[in-house]
Design a protein around this nucleic acid. Structure first.
Length: 338
DNA sequence: TTCCGACAGTGGGGTCGCAAT
DNA sequence: ATTGCGACCCCACTATCGGAA
């Protein structure tokens, strides 16, 4: 048994088992459940910053080092510098879980990372101007042992000692208490949110309530200027086309196609049919083949994660109509950070 | 009984690569 | 050169179902 594993208590050592192959262990990452929960005073949780990047599992064994996406696709050619950093480690048998991110202006920036995601040529990846960092936050296998049944705190302790962390590799730090205050501060700083994890929990290869996604709420009202045709089994409409006023111009802010139940789809479609107009209400060009336009009189509350560079909403969802708001009052609000 | 997790199906922005125009 | 499409990332959400609690 390796020195690291020998450092475990006898009770913890009993939780170890002979590991299946790294590929099997990495087949399905543990996923967090979106949650509104805010009461973490009871303890038993650890808190990590929610990183806005892509999930990446790393396997190293006698066959070499492999990076795997959430769907099991090989990502070695996309992040060769991460492969190098892992292949250089003294520890030579592990399965890691973590997140790849790209930074801009001190914040993780998904749109920047996207310029790297599609690269499947190692040389192009090395030449890319998008530097990436691999934040490692869990370990599933170490020196021939399956460690997924160990409590999270023990796994993170092993993980911290199993690797030496230098760019582009980073250990994901965590806090043991003060979740509420941490979340408030995270939102003020413009972070996406926090992940709360049960400190005593094992690693479960599925979505689990032991990991909670706590997101900073962002949203505002938008004017509805039209809709797209429904597809497939959808009824009513596909998505609402929404915007906000900039002076007298109605700027287009994108589509929102989720958050409706069947009754809402039907009701809103009926209201928009009454507001139908042949003229485009937006001042921007809207590339929608199946668009129907409506006089801009309805106001909808929309939740979203952030504005994209192109002035569109990211991850938009419909939260409800606002009968109490005048369309003319709807402007782009300054991000306050929830 | 209720609740949770998995699945399928709808919708979003964005990137890349490829084929058709 | 432009456009459209699919395959990937990230995702939110509704609706359904079977099994766990």
């Amino acid at each position: 048994m390796s020195e690291l594993l020998s450092s475990l208590s006898p009770d913890e050592r009993r939780l170890l088992s002979e590991a299946p192959s790294g590929a099997e262990l990495a087949a399905q990452p543990m996923l967090a459940t979106l949650s509104d929960r805010r009461d973490f005073d009871a303890g038993g949780w650890i808190f990590e910053r929610k990183l806005d990047g892509v999930r990446l599992l790393a396997v190293r064994d006698e066959r070499g080092t492999r990076l795997l996406s959430r769907n099991g696709l090989r990502e070695n050619a996309t992040y060769p510098e991460i492969v190098d950093a892992l292949a250089d480690q003294d520890t030579a048998d592990f399965v890691l879980d973590g997140e790849v991110v790209a930074f801009s202006h001190g914040r993780t920036d998904f749109s920047r990372l996207q310029q790297r995601l599609g690269i499947t040529d190692e040389r192009k990846a090395r030449a890319s101007h998008v530097a990436v960092t691999y934040y490692v936050f869990d370990i599933l296998r170490l020196d021939g042992s399956d460690v997924t049944r160990l409590p999270l705190r023990s796994r993170k302790s092993l993980l911290r000692r199993a690797l030496s962390y230098h760019a582009p590799l980073r250990f994901t730090p965590h806090r043991n208490e003060g979740g509420e205050e941490l979340l408030a501060r995270a939102c003020r700083q413009g972070w996406e949110g926090l992940i709360a994890k049960r400190a005593a929990g094992g690693y479960q290869p599925r979505r689990s309530g032991d990991w909670l996604k706590l997101k900073c709420a962002r949203g505002q009202e938008f004017v509805v200027g039209g809709f797209t045709e429904p597809g497939g089994s959808r009824t009513g409409f596909g998505a609402l086309l929404i915007g906000y006023y900039e002076g007298s111009r109605l700027r287009y802010a994108g589509k929102v196609g989720t958050g409706y139940d069947r009754a809402t789809l039907r009701d809103i479609r009926a209201r928009l049919d009454e507001l139908a107009t042949p003229s485009v209400p937006f001042s921007d060009r809207v590339r929608e083949h199946t668009a129907h336009w409506a006089r801009p009189e309805l106001v909808a509350q929309i939740g979203f994660t952030e504005w994209t560079r192109d002035g569109m909403l990211r991850h938009p969802r419909f939260l409800g109509l606002r009968e109490d708001k005048e369309p003319g009052d709807v402007v782009r609000e300054k991000a306050t950070g929830g």
